[in-house]
């Protein structure tokens, strides 16, 4: 029993980490105020991406993903289909939670829909939490850190190469997700890499097929 408790304690300790330290910018940077990177959507947009699912460095599946994301309402619609056109997963998410419309195995597993919608939110929408700190990492990359309302932290990092990285941490500072994208340009969603940390880590390589603004039809006047 003592051994089990010890193992559990070790596991819990190993699961936690310290958030990367954010420093004041050096004197060279102080001339200009730090602007938080903002690669996120500003209008309701529909994306169609190819999705390359990799684990252990190898491609496990290739799919086609459709996402409609609305930053104003923070609502999502997502669908995943095979090359052959078979829709294996479809769901919508918003303030009232996640509603799964269709989920075929293995996409019907518990928490898949919630985790997927959380990932989509991380990629496409500005983090909802309070901005608690901004500055630079030791590398000099600009970072803005937000405290998530549901717990945990999100860093949005602007790299020297112009690319943007989004990192989500657990409440105790363990890295959970990393998103790499092209930056603040209109091509930000051309290629997206999402990495899941942990023993069963995976990565999604998303390559844009097409995107378009979505104009909602105004309500019909009676």
């Amino acid at each position: 029993m003592k051994g089990l408790c010890f193992l559990i304690s070790v596991f819990l300790l190993a699961s936690c980490a310290t958030l990367p330290a954010i420093q004041e910018p050096s004197s060279a940077h102080v001339k200009e105020p730090i602007l938080c990177p903002f690669p996120f959507l500003q209008e309701k947009t529909r994306f169609i991406h190819t999705i390359d699912v990799q684990a252990a460095g190898q491609t496990k599946a290739v799919m086609i993903g459709v996402t409609v994301a609305d930053p104003a309402s923070r609502m999502f619609s997502c669908a995943i289909m095979s090359t052959e056109g078979m829709v294996v997963f479809e769901a919508v998410a918003g303030s009232e939670g996640v509603k799964v419309i269709r989920a075929l195995p293995p996409f019907d597993k518990p928490d898949f829909a919630r985790n997927m919608m959380d990932d989509m939110e991380l990629i496409f929408l500005e983090p909802a939490g309070e901005l608690v700190e901004k500055g630079v990492f030791v590398s000099g990359d600009v970072v803005c850190r937000r405290r998530q309302e549901q717990g945990g932290w999100v860093d949005v990092v602007a790299g020297h190469d112009g690319r943007v990285q989004i990192r989500r941490y657990s409440e105790c500072g363990a890295l959970k997700r990393t998103v790499n994208m092209d930056g603040n340009s209109r091509d930000a969603y051309k290629t997206i890499e999402l990495r899941s940390a942990g023993w069963l880590g995976y990565s999604l390589m998303m390559t844009l097929i097409e995107s378009e603004m979505v104009r909602d039809m105004p309500p019909v006047q009676k």
Binding site: D52, T59, T83, E84
Partner: peptide, 27 residues
């Protein structure tokens, strides 16, 4: 399938294999 996502299924003599793109080649 060639666009937008490539995939190939070969079948014959009781065997079926599906190929998907990975790292610039089909695996």
């Amino acid at each position: 399938y060639s666009k937008p996502l490539k995939s190939v299924v070969l079948s014959g003599k009781g065997q079926t294999k599906r190929y998907i793109p990975s790292g610039g080649k089909m695996v």
